[in-house]
Design a binder for these strands. Structure first.
Lengths: 159, 159
DNA sequence: CTATTTTAGTTGAAGCTTCAAGTAAAGATC
DNA sequence: GATCTTTACTTGAAGCTTCAACTAAAATAG
């Protein structure tokens, strides 16, 4: 054990890189999505998670988990997406506390039309910079960090 | 070349992990800093970058670069930090367009008192989840992504 | 040297996120 | 089976970020 209170060279590099990616990557993806369809990366992700869910609906809590968002943030955003006709709120048959968010046809059309451009942007902005091994390493390390931040995060469920 | 328009398993894992880290890590660090000193991670970073600069001052543009922020965002935040007595704005002697942000003594005291807790949080939330090799890999891969997002980003300058 | 363009920064408004408080149903406790 | 606690949300206000518009100085072009 050396000093517990400061970062060594690699730790500092890793931390600063992550911090920078954290600011620049969402900003760049937001710009692309804003130009393509006047929505944010978070909006896109909400629609994407619903589109991949069975029946294209999810309880708000589950949708919040899959977008790593607070229920409050999600609630505001779903209200907005609802006004745009992309999502509807429905009651849950078995539990009256639960609100189910349901992707509409229009919402599905939107995400289908946006997905190719968005995926291209993700490739152009990060994946194309990396070798196959890098991608595998990042997946492995990234999931370790996610596990540390939230030990039953949904992306860890399938493994 | 296979399909350019979709992600394979590792790519998807890497992307989703990064997206989740991106939401959860700043939120957790914000919570810690909010509790310790009523400031955000971004506020902290502005103070930290100034504290590490020679003379503890930097032109707004340079400070914006080192915090990966827009000049507009930085301007608003510096105004806030100024009201709290942590930063001052000064004229640049050689170029009248430039505003120099200068860390005050009180600002320095603040960052000195907050740094240990913040570094502990960074360790607890991400570094402790990783082996030394992981840290080195993340530093290497992270810098590749940063280079792709901004090929003359300041964190790449020293190398 | 005058006009144009670029650089550096600020500002106010609009939109987004967080925070605290509140509602209501479900589950647990006694 | 009444009370207490927890779960699942929603809401409004406050604060933060982005966006577009603006000012002013420096650099460039003609």
């Amino acid at each position: 054990m050396t000093e517990p209170h400061w970062l060594n060279a690699d730790e500092r590099r890793a931390w600063l890189a992550l911090l920078s990616i954290n600011t620049l990557l969402p900003a760049a993806l937001d710009t692309q999505l804003q130009a393509a369809g006047k929505l944010s990366l978070f909006d896109y992700n909400v629609l994407a998670m619903l589109s991949e869910a069975e029946g294209r609906f999810l309880p708000m809590s589950e949708l919040a988990a899959r977008t790593s968002a607070s229920l409050s943030r999600l609630s505001h955003v779903v209200t907005k997406l609802q006004r745009r006709g992309w999502v509807e709120r429905e009651a849950h048959p078995g539990d009256a506390r639960v609100t189910v968010a349901h992707l509409t046809e229009a919402g599905m059309d939107t995400i289908v039309s946006l997905a190719p451009g968005h995926v291209d942007a993700v490739r152009a902005l990060m994946l194309d910079a990396m070798s196959d091994d890098d991608v595998a390493d990042l997946a492995r390390i990234g999931e370790k960090i996610v596990a540390r931040l939230d030990d039953d995060h949904w992306i860890l469920r399938e493994r």
